[in-house]
Structures are given as structure tokens and as C-alpha cells.
Simulated assay, not measured.
Amino acid sequence: MKLYVVGTPIGNLQDITLRALEVLRSSDLIACEDKRRTGILLKTYNIKKPLLAYHDHNKKTMTPKILSMISKNKMVALVADAGMPGICDPGFYLIREAIRAGIEIVPIPGPSALVTGLVISGLPTDRFVFEGYLHRRRGRRRKQLTGLRNEKRSTVIYEAPSRIIRTLEDILEILGDRDVALVREMTKRFEEVVRGKVSEVIEELKQKKIRGELTLIIQGCDEK
């Protein structure tokens, strides 16, 4: 019994691997966050397979159904909207429950916004910490940032366009005017990297409309 965890492109659909395509073509079922987004990928490569929506709102009811299919020797592939499943998405829950059920997890590696953003940031990559999404509420977000004040490694976070300026302002106040790199729309047509001090990046962002998926890399305290 196996669950195939398949990495998919974070933007440019040509970044999918040959092995990922082979697994998707061979699967009996593909569990995905958004059937529309995954459908675009499958259509691009002429893959016609049943899709099952698997997201935060239904993961507890869908997980037993997926595990049951695997136990009946059905080949199931798990994909995220973009990148590797299990990173800041409900795939983690399915993977954990599959392991508990004695199911083998087969990784099909693919792109990751976390690693890609870090590599092109220009900040140290030998040691880093990933914080995922900071909390939406300002008080809890500031508490998280306070806990990073003495972090010596580069820190990577994901953030939404609607909150990025407020988050950067909190970073400036709590962590100081460190070097940061904000990576937007990686591998897509409007890919952009904004590098500089936190204060400089804030001023630049205030002059433009911020769209797309954002990855922020923050300098460690020892690098200042």
C-alpha cells in the first residue's frame, strides 16, 4: 500500500518532472486542494484522471475514504495547488494518517517556493528556519516575531499581499532594519525579487499594487 506525494510546479507548468507526469498518468485517483487549478495542469499534459477535492474544510472526512481506496490497492497521488504537498497545506494531515495506517509514503520531489526563494534571496542559505505563515492577528504575529529576535539563521516566511506591508512594519519595529528579500510570483511571467533593508522594501511596496504569492526571507541577527 502506497501514497504518492507528488510535487507540482509553483508557477511555470514546464517545471514538472517526468517522474511526476508518469505517476499522475498511472494514478487511479488524484487528491488535490483545488480541482480547477490541478485540472489546468492535467489538461496541459493531456492527463485525464478522477480528481478528489482535499482541503482544510474536508480533510477529516476525506482522509478515511482515501486510505480505504489505498487499502484496496488503488493508486492515489496527492498534490498541492503548487509545490510539494504537506508544506503549509492539508497534505500533512493525510500523510500523517497514512503513516499511522501503515501505508508507505512515496515522495515524487518537485519545486518548492521555500527553497527557491531562499536560493535567489542573496541571504545565507547554509542554515535557515521556516516559519510558514505568520498569524493574521497583529498581537500574535508580533509575539511570533519577538521569538525570532535572536534567531541567527535566515528566516523564511510566506505572506499574503494584503498583509505584507503590515508584517514588514512589525519586522522593522521588532527585529530592526535588517536585509530582506521579498520574492513574488516565482517562475511566472511577472516574477520579481525586491531586496534591501526592511524600511527600503516597505517604501518600494507602497508605490505599487502587490499581487501574487509572496515568500519573504529575513536576515539572521548575526549577519547584521
Rank of each mutant, 00 (worst) to 15 (best):
T155N: 11
L214H: 08
E173R: 14
L175A: 02
V193W: 01
T215I: 13
K209D: 09
I217N: 07
E151D: 12
N150Y: 15
L168D: 00
T146M: 15
I174N: 00
A181L: 10
R153Q: 04
K208F: 10
R178G: 08
L214N: 00
E159V: 12
E151K: 13
R178N: 00
R153H: 12
E204Q: 15
I174Y: 02
I174E: 00
E200H: 00
L216G: 06
L182Q: 04
T146Y: 14
A181M: 07
E213Y: 00
V183W: 08
K152H: 14
D179N: 14
G196R: 12
V180C: 06
L175D: 00
K188E: 03
R149I: 15
G176D: 01
I217C: 11
I174R: 05
R195T: 09
R184P: 03
L172P: 07
S199D: 01
L214R: 05
S154R: 00
I202H: 00
I165G: 06
R195L: 12
L172D: 04
I157N: 08
T187M: 07
I202K: 05
I217Y: 05
T215A: 13
E185R: 02
L182I: 07
T146P: 13
I164S: 11
L214M: 08
R163T: 01
I174A: 05
A160K: 12
G147M: 15
K209H: 12
L175N: 06
R153D: 05
V193N: 02
E200F: 06
T155K: 14
R184A: 03
L172V: 13
E204K: 15
L168F: 07
D177I: 13
V201Y: 08
E192I: 08
R178Y: 02
D179A: 14
V194A: 10
V183H: 06
R184F: 09
D170Y: 00
S162T: 14
P161D: 03
L172A: 13
K188W: 04
E200P: 03
P161E: 08
A160R: 13
Y158W: 09
E213A: 07
G147P: 12
T187C: 05
R153F: 02
V201P: 06
L182P: 03
I164C: 11
R166Q: 14
I202V: 12
I174T: 00
E191S: 04
I210S: 03
L172S: 12
R189A: 13
M186I: 12
I171S: 08
I171D: 05
V193H: 08
E203Y: 01
